[in-house]
Design a protein around this nucleic acid. Structure first.
Lengths: 357, 357
DNA sequence: CGCGACTGTGAATGCGCATTCAATGATTGC
DNA sequence: GCAATCATTGAATGCGCATTCACAGTCGCG
């Protein structure tokens, strides 16, 4: 059998149903003017022919493909996997589909956007990747909304959705201080990403308010992955000669998890007895028994919701909002990697009943 | 600014370059007959106009969209996330993109395939979901290859790619037996999936060869997730009155991990001292220190490779191979959740240097 | 020097559908 | 009962591009 075989077209259906091609098109277009009886006849004929409307052809006239490009920079971080899942679910419910573009973490996404543009996508969601202003205007000039997820780009026209990373960093510092920590370390991620930068900034800012000098806060950058963080933890804490910081901030949960495992299993440290640790994101994995990570929760659902709102897919003619950046509130989740000070006892996370889904 | 704004077309470019629209088309089609000098002129004009070829329009004539549908049934299992990542990378390298369809685990994927068909995708990869034969022929009739990944459907025309799950189940049983286990339990997943069924079958088969009766092998089904398995582990082992099996087979790694954590942290059991555990898949997470799961490795790269080969995207006119099902060999990875018998000492996994990527 | 074999080119066509337009019959309001 | 509205309908058109076709130069080889 030939690969390009007989796919019935709307004309074929029209012929079988004894109506015009217009009628077939109307039968499949909700809200268009067609007699119920005729529509039934058309659908019946379509069924007989195994007719499936060609949405590629239709988007040629409608200018809408119902495809959203999702540019993913770091699938190794479960946070983005959950984001992907959530977008896929929500967009499918809205009659849209997600077209995936993966790029190397931290690298330019220009090439991916160019490819996306060829598919005439209705919108772009960008996670974990850089973006040139040229690409932003390329999209905007065509009326295609582009939303930066979990990041922003200073001076960029593109709108972004994120949580208050600076505030979250402060919350972590606050928690460490409340638990009595005196010396601090950080494992940071992509130095070009505003997300990592902001978390560091809030964290450091708060510590400096307590008279701690920036130079006293040890920092090691790693690849934004479990293994990268494990490596970084070893370089930070592996040297027995140096005094050991008693609080470690992992810039995101997956890195904090890598650090925790390295500290425990490679260096034999007890957490939080020898050393307290915090993460950021509150990915489902952070709740699991081996970790019980104290962390800052990102409001993923709200963030997804706001992203969809910014794209206003149902009102394609509305002008695109430029440069919007309203950080959502983040919240500290107390678990077991920081000793809980009495004042916070009532805040301890009750993870029972929370399903990973 | 209007949402539908000026996207330059090949005619605009042609006008600016002083050539025909055909020439523009040729300039962007590798291997077509056009003078190098003219091509340069066209590209220059295209650059000036920010022209991006409309691949939607072109696929109307070429009948190829370069889009592959990936139907995902269980994003909660990291195994499928790695699969997604791998397909995305490989397909992008081949100039294709992945369109995501998520369905509820274990549910029918017919509706998703119908939606995929509307996008005139060039191929379908199906993971973790059921499939009716009607959909298979719908795809095949249109010359669209459909490959079942990590499963097969008995009597179906669709080809599949998977590893030898029966053999893998046997390997697990073998390992338990070699380590001296006498009583056995299983936590199984989707009862409709051949993957779970086959692993169980191989496992049970091997045990029965040793004179163990099927009825002696305890079994609890759970949702195919970390939490589902944790729950199942509690119902299996939570009852102190009953004698405790000394070997537990988690039908995949994520479930084995859920079980391990529940056993350790909820029931205070030591692994492998009180109880040995094995998983299946060898996801990167299984290597991590808290788990060090003894498991069966699925050859993901080979499986992806074979899937692409079955779709032979570059030879669209070649007839589609029907009902192919050649299980790939799987391999036992010894880690720490089963005591390693002397005979297997040399097989212990050396995970150093293996990066999660 | 001459004729077939090529290469490069533009005009024209069609891919499958949504939409516009004008026409039809049906229904309503007064 | 008559004009005015309304709901349906099909023919025709165009979306942006690849491809076919016919034609004009070019080249090679005898």
């Amino acid at each position: 059998m030939k690969r390009i075989s007989s796919r019935a077209t709307s004309f074929d259906v029209a012929a079988l149903a004894g109506v015009s091609q217009s009628a077939v098109s109307r039968a499949f277009t909700p809200g268009s003017s067609i007699a119920e009886e005729k529509r039934a006849k058309v659908l019946e004929a379509a069924r007989k022919l195994n007719y499936v409307p060609n949405s590629i052809a239709s988007s040629l006239t409608t200018k809408r493909t119902n495809i959203i490009a999702l540019i993913l920079g770091n699938m190794g971080n479960p946070f983005y996997v959950h984001v992907l899942h959530e977008f896929s679910r929500r967009l499918q419910a809205l009659g849209r589909q997600v077209l995936i573009f993966t790029v190397d973490p931290g690298s330019e996404s220009d090439e991916a956007i160019l490819r996306a543009l060829q598919y005439q996508i209705d919108g772009v969601i960008l996670t974990a990747a850089q973006l040139s202003t040229r690409m932003t205007s390329l999209c905007h000039d065509r009326g295609i909304p582009i939303v930066l997820f979990n990041r922003y780009i200073p001076g960029s026209d593109a709108s972004g959705v994120r949580c208050d990373n600076v505030g979250g960093g402060r919350l972590i510092a606050e928690a460490f201080l409340a638990a009595g920590a005196k010396s601090f370390a950080m494992i940071t991620g992509d130095p070009k990403g505003t997300t990592s930068q902001d978390r560091v900034r809030g964290f450091v800012e708060r510590l400096m308010e307590e008279g701690i000098r920036r130079s006293e806060i040890e920092e090691v950058g790693g690849q934004s992955s479990y293994d990268g963080a494990a490596q970084a933890a070893l370089t930070l804490f592996g040297d027995r000669a140096r005094p050991r910081p008693d609080a470690l901030f992992g810039i995101n949960d997956i890195m904090a998890m890598g650090a925790v495992d390295a500290l425990r299993y490679r260096l034999g440290l007890k957490i939080p007895d020898d050393l307290m640790v915090a993460g950021f994101d509150d990915i489902p994995e952070a709740r699991r028994s081996p970790y019980k990570l104290t962390t800052v929760r990102q409001p993923i659902n709200q963030m997804v919701e706001q992203t969809l709102a910014l794209m206003h897919l149902d009102e394609p003619d509305r002008p695109i909002e430029r440069g919007i950046d309203m950080p959502l509130a983040s919240r500290l989740i107390w678990r077991s990697t920081i000793p809980v000070p009495p004042a916070y006892r009532s805040d301890i996370a009750d993870d029972a009943g929370m399903d990973e889904g």
